[in-house]
Structures are given as C-alpha cells and as structure tokens.
C-alpha cells in the first residue's frame, strides 16, 4: 500500500485550475519526484499533502488517513511524522543553527537538554554542519541553510520528507552535496521522499519514480529511464530542455506580423 494516495485532486485558485483531476501514488521507502514547468503548482501540491491547503475536490491519504478530514490535533500529530524542506530553508532567523535544529525537539518532547544536544549534534553531523552550529541563519549560504533545514526536518525522525525545489539556485558543489544527502538520508533512515523540482538531471539521478505535471494534469509517469523513452513530444521537450516545441517560445497572442502592421490603440 502506498504511503500517500492522491485521488481525483481538484484545486482552484480563483478561476484557474491548478490541479484538475490528479492521481498520484507515492510508494514507501522510495524517492518520488514531481516535476513540471514553473507555475504548475508543485509547491501547492506539497502544501495540500501537509494539510496547509484544502482541495475543492478529491482526497489525499497519508498513511491511511485522509489529511483533510482529520481534526486539528490529529493533523498536528500527523505533521510530526512529516518533514518538509522549504525552498528558502525557512529557518527561524532570530535563533542560531543549533537552536533551529533543536526547535522541533524542544517543542514536541520533554527530553533533557543534554539529550537534545546529542541529537542535534548527530543530525548536524549527518549534514556536515556540526561546526557551524553557532552561526546565525543570515550567515549561511543558501546551500548550507538547506542542509540545516534538512537536519531540522529529520530531527523528529519522520516517516517522510517533502523537498520543495531543493536544487534551485545552487552551485554545482552544493547541488551535488544535496543530491547525495537526500539519497543517503532516504536510505539510511528508511524514509519516503517526495522531491518537487524542475531540475531534470539531478532529479533523475535520485528519483525512483517521476510524475510529470503540466496544466493541472499528470502528463507522464514512470522511472527516469521510462521517461527518457517517452514518445510524447512534450516530455521530450521538457527532459531535454528544448526552447521551442509543444510549449511555445512565444507567449500566446496575436501574430507578430499583424501586431507590427496594426498601430497600438492607446499610443
């Protein structure tokens, strides 16, 4: 049985359909990637899974529980078992790295401070930032902030982690570090990972299964190899990053030649 079961998901923002009947299964212990062009609501999907947003139609089941039918306290209990890594890291800016990682432990457990210290150092060691524990978040680079956020996300030993665009805006080295970390943590802790991304190369390195989203629908799904062999033109354009194809280079509108010949009305 999959850990997350999304069925017939509909979500609208205003009149715009972000999701228009989406079905996704996320298998336990695997890295599942959700990919798609910018603005297809990949982050929205994570917020729907986390129960921060409510769909207009459809269900999302996490570990057998319908997220949007849970009471507030049950939802909070469920969230303790979910980790989420935000694009910006979302570290608390007024406390240092150590306290950031200790934050969920202090909020949710009554562990003595000495034990918290051991746990925090262990998590920071895993992401290679044990010696950066006294820095403030503003002193970290983007990649380091994400690694700290990762240490914090796994502090409560969750059953799954959601990564929101973990590779965006990273230099090759920290990109490599993050890819490696996600892989390692997933295997070492037996986690289920969901990676939302549009970085084709890095994502296909770690993903066991990929869903391609566009226009509110699943266009294609399968392992990275299967996707590469896809016959869909759209999939090929996305995977190879071609500038023109089914997704046109030009923003939709009147023809260029017509536009040139017709004087602007308000000019």
């Amino acid at each position: 049985m999959p850990l997350i079961k999304i069925r017939d998901l509909h979500f609208y923002r205003g009149n715009r359909a972000i999701f228009d009947g989406v079905n996704i299964d996320i298998e336990r212990g695997k890295v599942t990637a959700i990919m798609g062009p910018s603005g297809t609501g990949k982050t929205t999907l994570l917020k729907l899974i986390g129960g921060q947003l409510r769909p207009q139609k459809g269900t999302i089941e996490v570990d057998g529980q319908d997220v949007h039918k849970l009471s507030r306290s049950d939802l909070y209990e469920l969230r303790k078992r979910m980790g989420m890594l935000f694009q910006s890291g979302a570290l608390l800016t007024d406390i240092n790295v150590y306290d950031n990682v200790a934050f969920p432990l202090r909020e949710h457990t009554d562990l003595p401070e000495s034990l918290i210290r051991d746990l925090v150092l262990m998590k920071l060691q895993a992401v290679g930032l044990r010696n950066a524990r006294n820095l403030m978040p503003s002193e970290l680079s983007g990649g380091m902030a994400r690694r700290v956020a990762l240490a914090r996300a796994v502090a409560l030993e969750p059953m799954m982690i959601m990564y929101d665009e973990p590779f965006t805006g990273q230099d090759p080295i920290s990109m490599g570090t993050l890819v490696n970390l996600i892989h390692r943590i997933n295997d070492a802790m037996g986690l289920t990972s969901i990676v939302v991304s549009h970085d084709v190369g890095e994502t296909s390195e770690i993903a066991d299964h990929i869903y391609l989203l566009s226009g509110g629908k699943i266009i294609e799904q399968g392992s990275p190899e299967q996707l590469k062999q896809s016959s869909s033109e759209w999939v090929q354009q996305f995977i190879q990053g071609l500038p023109d194809g089914p997704v046109p280079f030009h923003f939709a509108g009147p023809d260029y030649a017509d536009d040139l010949l017709q004087p602007e009305e308000n000019a």
Binding site: Y76, F86, S88, H108
Partner: peptide, 13 residues
C-alpha cells in the same frame, strides 16, 4: 520567508 509555514509543517502552531 516561509518561517510561519515551516513552523506549521513542524506541527507547531
């Protein structure tokens, strides 16, 4: 900076 959202996902209101 998504700190509030992040807190919510850490099950902290």
């Amino acid at each position: 900076t998504e700190q509030l959202s992040g807190m919510e996902m850490m099950a902290v209101d």
